[in-house]
Every structure is written in C-alpha cells, then in structure tokens.
C-alpha cells in the first residue's frame, strides 16, 4: 500500500518492528516468572512452559466446557495455579534443592514430562485455542499512518506485560514480602538471621512465577493454538528472553522479550524458517557478549585480557610457526 507517510520499502520493516515489540510483551510475561525463579529463588524450573500450557487448558475447559466468561475463567485459574506453584515448591522443589544443583534439573524435566502426558491424557492431542472465546479481539486491528497494522490483542498483551512487570517491580521493592524475597535471594542465611522466613519467601516467589506462566499460557492460546506438548518451545523462548535481559532483572526481562520478539519478526521478513533462527542467533550473540564481558572484567578490561590470552598461548603459536618453517 503506497503511502506518503511511509516509503513503500520501509513499510514492512516498521510493521515487523511494531509486531516484534508487541510479541516481546508476550515473551516477557512468560519469562518474568522464570527470571524470578532463576534469579531470586535460584531454582531452574524446566516445567515452566508446561505450567503455562496447563493454565491455558484450564481456562479452555472453564470457558468451552463450563461456559464461563473468559475473564471469570482467568480469575479462577490464576489463584489455582499460584496455589499449585506454592504447593509444588513446598512439596517438590524444596526437597530437590537440597540435593545439589543437578537434582532440580532432573526433577523439573520429569515434572514437565509428567505434566505433558497427564494433559495429553486429560485433554487429548487436539490443538486448542481461546481465539473463538474472545470474539473480534482475536483479529481486530488498528491501522497506523503509513498502513502499519497493529493487532488489538497483541497491544493488550503488551500493555498487560508492562502492568505485570511494573507491579512485580513495585512488590519486590516496596512490600514486606518483596523485600523478604530479595533479601533471601541475596543471602538466605543472613536473611534468616534478620527474622526473614526464607522458606515462605521462596514459596511465594514460586507461586508468583507459576501464576505468571499460566497467564502467559492464556495469552498464547488467545494468539494461536496450543497442544499439551507446546510447553518446551515456550520455555526456550522464555529462557532466551531471560538471558538477553539479564538474570533476575525484572525490567530487563521486558527488554529481553522485546529484543527476542523484534529479532524473530525481522527474521520473518526473510522467510518463515529464518524467524525462529534469527531469535536463537541473537540470543547466542548476547550470551557470547555477556561471557566475553565477564571474562574481560575478570582480567581488567579487554585490552588486558587479550594481552593475557596471547601471552598464555605464545608458546603454542611459536611452535606452529616452527613446524611450518
């Protein structure tokens, strides 16, 4: 669509940027719970994506099976999933954490597999969606000057992400529970000595994380279709957003989600397959950059670290030169 406001060549680019940003909102909601678990509770929950799918399937059953309005269904599902997160931490994660760093990974992989197959048993393998339950919202869009289309649902999800992350920031910063969670994450032993109930703080963080994962799952089912096995893919996106945004940083997660979303939609301009690949490549680039910066910081700046590296490997280079000669 030629337009005076936006040159024809730039239009798809702007469209991709806008859509990527909005997609990033979804990733951020998915990732912020994971970030809380990894950065604050120091627990890697590999069943995070499956909990998102479980939340979505619960809402689907409440609306399509019991005929509840979708908003009511979400309001019922969220406390249920948060409670499940609290209980899972109390019954499973705490024990797993006592068994060293490997056990949580094994336990949550197992939990994920158990969840996927239970959901498969209960809901079957059909793809399901909440798209029909939100009416026109699933496809309605606004047209911005220049012919850029903006879906109303993605805007809603992105606003929701800002709201969720903003309130999480406020809770962590300004409430007794939030400060207890932060104190526990920095130094659980010192926190206990200050009278903080570290166990309760971790359980509460876990409840928040699972509740937010379930909310993200609902948005996923509104945007498209889910199956009981959709979780692991979402987990990967969430992990990428967490790493890009910086471990444990709440606002960073929003940035990470948006960077991931924009990379994917820019990659999508090239081809469908390039979309996910671009996201993964950007994630890898950020990861390498972070590792490199950590490495240079440990050696006192990048000049010094390059010098240290070449000094360390000088002998090897010399020998190779000698072999050639």
């Amino acid at each position: 669509m030629p337009d005076a406001f936006l040159p024809e060549l730039l239009q798809p680019l702007v469209q991709a940027l806008v859509q990527g940003t909005l997609l990033g909102g979804y990733y951020a909601i998915m990732a912020v719970g994971l970030s809380l678990m990894v950065g604050v509770v120091r627990f890697i929950n590999l069943a995070h994506g499956d909990m998102a799918v479980l939340g979505a399937l619960l809402v689907i059953t409440l609306t399509q099976g019991l005929g509840l309005p979708i908003f009511a269904a979400i309001l019922i599902m969220l406390p249920v999933m948060a409670l499940a997160g609290y209980g899972m931490h109390a019954l499973l994660f705490e024990r797993a954490m006592r068994g060293g760093f490997l056990l949580p990974i094994l336990v949550t992989i197992g939990l994920g597999a158990a969840l996927q197959n239970s959901m498969f048993g209960l809901w079957g393998s059909n793809t399901r969606s909440l798209g029909a339950d939100i009416g026109a919202l699933s496809w309605a869009s606004w047209t911005l000057p220049g012919g850029v289309l903006v879906g109303q649902l993605p805007v809603l999800v992105c606003l929701c992400a800002v709201l969720v992350i903003g309130s999480l920031h406020l809770v962590l910063r300004h409430t007794r529970l939030g400060r207890a969670i932060k104190a526990t994450s920095t130094d659980a032993e010192a926190a206990e000595l200050c009278g903080v109930d570290a166990r309760r703080a971790r359980r509460a963080a876990s409840a928040i994380a699972v509740g937010l994962a379930a909310l993200a799952g609902v948005f996923l089912a509104m945007r498209g279709q889910i199956t009981p096995y959709s979780g692991p893919a979402q987990l990967i996106f969430a992990f990428e957003a967490v790493v890009i945004g910086g471990l444990g940083s709440v606002w960073g997660t929003l940035v990470g989600g948006i960077v991931l979303g924009i990379s994917q939609s820019l990659g999508g301009l090239v081809s469908n397959q390039a979309s996910l690949l671009t996201g993964h490549l950007v994630f890898l680039a950020v990861l390498l950059l972070r590792l490199f910066r950590e490495w240079t910081a440990a050696h006192g700046g990048w000049r010094a670290s390059v010098r240290a590296w070449t000094t360390l490997h000088r002998g090897r280079f010399a020998r190779r030169k000698g072999e050639k000669a």
Binding site: R179, T186, D187, C194, G195
Partner: peptide
C-alpha cells in the same frame, strides 16, 4: 553479608519488619 542490591536503609528495613 549485606543484601547487596538494596540500599542501607532497605537492609535495615528488612530486619525491622521481619525480625
């Protein structure tokens, strides 16, 4: 062993509220 990502005031506040 302070809570490093909090201010000194917040450190004391945690102890006052919780303990």
């Amino acid at each position: 062993r302070p809570f490093r990502d909090m201010t000194l005031f917040e450190n004391v506040l945690v102890a006052a509220r919780a303990g």
